[in-house]
Design a binder for these strands. Structure first.
Lengths: 151, 151
DNA sequence: GCTTGATCTAAAGTGCACTTGAGATTGTAG
DNA sequence: CTACAATCTCAAGTGCACTTTAGATCAAGC
């Protein structure tokens, strides 16, 4: 009886440790973001390392990545293994790149907005702010930046 | 027959001039973002100035404001009048403030991410990046910044 | 052994910003 | 006047990321 409750977590425990709802965890599993053991019986058992995995999902999301983006990032790791420190570093670096692009975009936008306020052109047909072919606001409504966005 | 087709626009014309779908325009009206004349007959007629109004909605959205945010901004103008140049300037200034805050937030986040990559702590429980009580990622999933956010 | 709480599945609901579809009406060119 | 396009209303559907609900099953403490 060496390790039984100490190594694995119930879904409720994982929820408690990550602050993510039980229903959300099930949803993540359904979408392939986490995996659970289903021993003889029926209930899910998670590994301790899934705490990190789930936390990472939330971080990535707070940076604007979608579930799909995260799934892709995870899928890039060899054979669904629990990510190592250097895996995390690689993914984090990707996210930073996305972040850099997003910041640049917003700064660009702010510059244009300042111009716009200054000139008061208001025509908006020729206004730099909302011009087709421009960078910002491309991906539909609301800010959204995804992995696919980078060059 | 001085001015008939020149002063007002059909919904199709407004859609063509703004690049916004007819259905979206009807939705905006329903949500109170634009108003239309409904003369004796039944079809909507829009004012030329609504082109600016709609363009502004799209700009605001591309900056991350919701329909509700825009509605609030418009509602702040005296008695639903067609916004003047200085109205636009005031609203634009508000948006810029939101933009500033958002950029600061992202930069903050980037700094933390850099630290995180550097230190490789990976614990994420104590990681600054995803810490309850912290600024970023508060408003649910995905980046979203609204008027209500400011102090 | 039994009760109680945790967990299970599957389906439906939520909120945002629209789009799509169905079926009726209007407006305009010829 | 008549086609035919544009517009109308109202209801339902879409996509994302979940949550909620319902009814059943499992696990654990007493």
């Amino acid at each position: 009886m060496a390790l039984k409750h100490s190594d694995v977590l119930t879904i409720g425990e994982l929820a408690a440790r990550t602050g993510v709802a039980v229903s959300a965890l099930r949803y993540y599993e359904e979408r392939g973001l986490v995996r659970s053991l289903r021993p003889a019986g029926r209930h899910r058992r998670f590994l301790r390392s899934d705490i990190r995995r789930v936390s990472f999902i939330k971080i990535a999301q707070s940076l604007g990545l979608t579930i799909e983006d995260v799934a892709r990032a995870f899928a890039a790791l060899p054979e669904g293994r629990t990510p190592t420190a250097s895996d995390w570093r690689a993914i984090s670096a990707d996210i930073r790149a996305v972040l850099d692009r997003r910041i640049a975009e917003l700064e660009n936008m702010r510059g244009k907005l300042n111009n716009c306020i200054g000139c008061g052109c208001l025509s908006l047909k020729r206004c730099a702010l909302y011009n087709p072919g421009d960078q910002a606001g491309k991906t539909g409504s609301g800010p959204r930046f995804v992995f696919e966005d980078h060059p």
